[in-house]
Nucleic acid binder design. Structure first.
Length: 321
DNA sequence: TAGGCCATCTGGTCCT
DNA sequence: AGGACCAGATGGCCTA
């Protein structure tokens, strides 16, 4: 086997030095040194063919390698190797493109999540979990009339998320300057859970949907949610993202409305390229006033209660035909 | 330094 | 034959 690998050494060199399949779009993303795997495995077919060429070769310890059965395979001519390489290079490029598409889709998903930051990106798995929770929570709003300002809504949103993500979501949705101050004090006095509303509860929250699995990690302690009291409108407050200093990820991206209701669920338009630079500036699809949300299907802003009412009304109308 | 997350390469499988 | 999809492997980066 060692000999086999060394006999393929030239291919390894060849493949590792092939930056030829690096497309311009990958600039800055593709690092040829990344994910390199040492000896390149040519795959069963090619390996077998190499073995074939080696004939009855004894192994390292002198024991005989079992004779291979089945039809003899074609010899690995230089032309075939070339074709194989070309195919592999193309397949790699396609796979990269495919994964980039997948990542783009995830990015789009991140942007319609109740907390979105270009700089503090949710991981892939957290994005998917939060998306599921978001859909679930919104369904509850629609079907059971649950208030999006309730504990339950926030609990559903944070279910199964890691603690940092839960904090991020909670922070994005409901923390105003005063809450942040209180929270900071709480944390200094013994970390999350030492005070504040969550700590006052002092027990794990119970979750109403038995159909959903328990969180794989992260706890559901109420203290993870920092403060759950009325987040309405607070997300538009210009709180400093760096006020949390003990592990709570700072939120320094554009502030996503809790539910910027415009049509289906909370779809937003693509953020402007400059959105990242401004901490809080008007956006066509974002409400510009604290405590306001966008009127469904339009750019009118309403007090958030009215917006939810309209949202609810429209959804019910669609739901019931 | 360990662990989490990620991008990439790769071979296998299925489908057209 | 070739493309899409998938899962395993690998190594880089970052953070606690």
């Amino acid at each position: 086997m060692t000999e086999l690998v060394s006999s393929l050494g030239w291919i390894e060199e060849d493949l590792s030095s092939q930056d030829g399949d690096q497309t311009p779009e990958m600039e800055g993303r593709y690092n040829p040194n990344r994910g390199s795997r040492g000896p390149v495995d040519l795959g069963s077919e090619d390996m077998e063919e190499e073995e074939e060429e080696d004939g009855e070769e004894s192994g390292l310890d002198g024991e005989k390698a079992p004779k291979r059965r089945g039809p003899k395979k074609k010899k690995m001519t230089k032309a075939r190797i070339e074709r194989f390489r070309a195919r592999r290079v193309k397949a790699n490029a396609r796979e990269r493109t495919r994964m980039h598409g997948l990542n783009d889709a995830l990015d789009n998903l991140r942007q319609v999540m109740p907390c979105y930051s270009k700089t503090q990106k949710l991981s892939k798995i957290e994005t998917l979990r939060l998306a599921r929770n978001y859909i679930w929570a919104l369904s509850e709003v629609l079907e059971n009339g649950q208030s999006p300002e309730s504990h339950g809504f926030m609990e559903m949103l944070c279910k199964g998320l890691s603690q940092p993500t839960s904090n991020l979501v909670a922070g994005c949705l409901q923390l105003g300057p005063s809450a942040m101050m209180v929270n900071k004090m709480d944390e200094k006095c013994g970390g999350p859970g030492a005070g504040g509303m969550g700590a006052q509860q002092g027990h794990s929250l119970s979750y109403p949907s038995p159909g959903l699995p328990s969180p794989p990690y992260g706890s559901l302690e109420a203290s993870h949610l920092i403060h759950l009291k009325g987040f309405k409108g607070a997300a538009y407050e210009n709180h400093s993202p760096n006020e949390c200093s003990n592990g709570t990820p700072p939120y320094d991206g554009p502030l996503t409305p809790p539910l910027s209701i415009s049509g289906n669920f909370a779809l937003k338009q693509e953020p402007s390229p400059h959105e990242n630079e401004r901490n809080f500036t008007p956006h066509p699809t974002h409400p510009t006033h604290p405590g306001h949300a966008l009127f469904p299907g339009s750019r009118f802003e309403l007090p958030i209660e009215m917006a939810f009412e309209s949202f609810h009304h429209i959804k019910l109308k669609r739901y019931h035909g």
